[in-house]
Amino acid sequence: MVRIKHRYLLVHILYPDPADPNAKSSSLTPGKNFPDLVQFHRPSPNDLTPQLFARAIKDQVLLLYGDYGLGLVTSSLYIKYLSPATSTAIVRCSRAHYRLVWAALSFMTHITVTSTQSHQSRACAMQVVRVSGTIKKVEEEAIRRARAAILRAKRESDEGTADGILGILGKEGEETLQGEKNMNDLSSMSDEDNEMGIESDEDG
């Protein structure tokens, strides 16, 4: 028996457009002015469920590849992990067709959240930051990135450089280096983690 081979995609949900005021008040604490960096990696709405996300991907696959593509993808597509707080997701798909799923993610421009009271659609961009054959590596990468993001946001908001293009681009190398260096300091920062809505979910 040959096992079915999978690919795991680590997906970041990015929000390039500035938040509209009503959405901001619902998901974030009002009155606080967030820097652009945090706005860019904004938490997703809380009613974004894995089922909804899978539905959105499948709709996009259907739009791009039709019934044939959806048929290929649908049996193996599974949202392993979705954290609305960090806007991070791990998507599992079969190795043969992971590029179809990836293309569908690239072509997504919004996620429609239909809750009981409101029907809102938010412009967002999906960025696949890691593709791996094992979920372990994807998980490690997700944790590493979340840590680095927190540290960078904190540091830059202290320095006041987190706004504009400077904040969003940053320096990738510097960020990772800083992340490694401050790994030990992280335990002291766990209370800030909760404040920023980022949970260190270890079990994927």
């Binding site: 390039p16 457009d17 590029r99 421009t109 967002c124 961009a125 999906m126 696949v128």
Partner: peptide
């Protein structure tokens, strides 16, 4: 023309492969 239309380099490469 909008930031929304930008994609990451790896995403673009994947599209090009397709």
């Amino acid at each position: 023309k909008r930031a929304l239309a930008c994609r990451g380099p790896a995403d673009v490469v994947n599209l090009a492969v397709l």
